[in-house]
Nucleic acid binder design. Structure first.
Lengths: 345, 345
DNA sequence: TTGTACGCGTTATCAT
DNA sequence: ATGATAACGCGTACAA
């Protein structure tokens, strides 16, 4: 590989002049500049990112931490969409993405040394998603003097912000839809692990109910882990614990997968959807519009989330004094076939 | 961030000694070594990957090129699975993944400067997928003296190999299944763009037919681009062009998505699946086991493909003289509900 | 307008 | 067993 020295030698100038031309400095003669440019092309010279980074103390790299999801044949291209969005955003500014490998997925005692690894690679910013909120190492990362954006984790720091869907509004809209259809006995399948999105969606649902003077009884709140199995388990336990004449007429599951599980359990119990039970999900994964009945749900724009995170990182990198943003991406309510007017009692 | 100089100063030794300890050289006194190790821990010293790479001319980075798929709300977590597999494999050897951004997706005149970008970042190896076979720049990359593995692209070079599913056998098995069910008029929805997997699957299907003395008539071969829409289009045109009494009783689509399209078109034409028409797909995307009728298909192990690619790269990197492998990952035939015995004529 | 020389943080060679 | 010192390839004050 040719170095800047080779180009300089071939052009009969010093490396300084070559460097200046390549970095757009004005104080170089037109002829010299043209000549250097030509030679650069000819020999296919590419400045070494490592040497460049070493000298400038920058890498033009965004570090990405993410875990293989628990249910690792995962249905929704969640990470992929976020990643592509981020990739596009940072790519426009000349940054590439660095994926850290080898992460351990363990809620409590995780020894995921995010910060040291980020420092070792000298990434200019960090995007983190899919980690557990309780992971202690997250704080060290958030407190560091390194631009950082979390996805679906409400953590901030001097240079750390986060982005997530407007879960509160999205959930509120979903419940309002059920209320509009005349439902009054509405159950919610929440998130057992207490993630921020889970909290917000539950709160949004509660708010919608409160606005019409309704409450969410404890026996109508069950918890899962976003998987289909947990959804059917939660629904099954609900149907067991609650007397038949008090069964809910509608269920809001905090993820599409759990919504599918709810439908499974409902069918198992002899309930038809949406005839006897209306079901609303959250995410709008691809399969949601294909299964019968097609699922009414709240769509998340994951690509947008990634783009926002990427853009925010670049801003923070290029502007030291910028305070880290807390971003919210709007959701879209999608009415399909899994919800119907409440049957007369 | 502390540097090796800081550690040396604190330990009262030279940087050479520190470097030796950190890199496991034996010629350092036990006491000195322990002291240096302690201080390293205390100050949280991490060797800079950039400086290290500059000095050693290695980056411990695997460069990854991939395109956002054409239908970019893509259903199957294809890339994600491959990526995770590769990430796990290379992570075990201390490598991370570098994602190149900003790629243009244009079959013919693509100006995707893979090689220059790989060189600029000094990646030790390259994983490439999702590109068009015709992309001229691919050759430059394959010819370079840089370990490289292609996924689903049959390109080799002095240090370049590739990995893909055993598409030939997978397709053969699918057709054999249809033959076993008594089908004789079997149509195939192939790949319009002539990808390697497309070619192999078509050839595998033909071979299965040939083994029982059957041929694949031209009017029974239609082409799509792996998308659902193209699948239904291909099937619709087939049903239009071929007289009703010669309609196929079974269709093998080279992707699950196209298989769904085929079912759509069949339903449109008043055909029931699998009553009037048996359908087999390829991939086994998640949705395949959920839609009704559940799709009979050929499962690809994408995670494995990624792992194999990653492992191969590491081997090539650590052994200059290793000739690049051409790997094949077995598929698994999954019989479900979209196929049934051929009706008596 | 051009060039000299130093620093970035390592590893590696060769003395001591 | 330990330490100078020269690379690695680049950017940039500063001098010319």
């Amino acid at each position: 590989m040719p170095t800047i020295h080779d180009v300089a030698r071939l052009a009969g100038v010093s490396i300084t002049t070559v460097s200046k031309v390549l970095n757009g400095y004005p104080d170089v003669g037109a002829k010299t500049r043209a000549n250097i440019l030509r030679i650069t092309q000819e020999v296919g010279y590419q400045p070494s990112a490592m040497a460049r980074g070493l000298a400038m103390n920058r890498s033009w790299l965004i570090g990405v931490f993410f875990q293989d999801a628990v249910n690792s044949g995962l249905e929704h291209p969640f990470f992929e969409a976020v990643l592509n969005g981020c990739k596009n955003a940072v790519g426009r500014h000349g940054y590439d993405l660095l994926f850290f490998s080898n992460l351990v997925f363990a809620p409590g005692d995780a020894k995921n040394d995010y910060l040291p690894r980020a420092r070792q690679r000298q990434v200019d910013g960090v995007l983190l998603m899919g980690a557990h909120r309780q992971d202690k190492e997250l704080r060290r990362l958030a407190e560091a003097d390194l631009p950082c954006m979390f996805v679906d984790i409400d953590m901030t720091g001097p240079r750390a912000g986060f982005v997530q869907s407007n879960n509160h509004e999205g959930a509120k809209r979903a419940i309002q839809h059920l209320l509009d259809l005349g439902h009054r006995r509405i159950a919610v399948i929440g998130d057992r692990y207490g993630s921020k999105p889970g909290e917000d969606r539950l709160a949004g649902g509660r708010e919608a109910l409160a606005e019409v003077g309704l409450e969410l009884p404890d026996e109508y709140v069950r918890f899962g882990d976003f998987s289909q199995e947990s959804g059917s388990g939660a629904m099954a336990s609900l149907l067991t614990d609650v007397p038949r004449d008090k069964w809910p007429t509608a269920v809001f599951a905090l993820s599409d997968l759990m919504a599918f599980g709810v439908m499974d359990a409902a069918l198992e119990a002899g309930l038809s959807v949406p005839g006897d039970l209306s079901v609303v999900g959250f995410d709008d994964i691809n399969i949601a519009s294909r299964l019968r009945p097609r699922l009414t749900t709240v769509r998340q724009d994951m690509h947008r989330i990634g783009e926002q995170a990427g853009e925010a990182l670049i801003q923070m990198i290029e502007n030291d004094s910028l305070r880290p943003p807390v971003l919210s991406v709007d959701t879209e309510f999608v009415e399909r076939e899994s919800t119907a007017p409440a049957a007369l009692q």
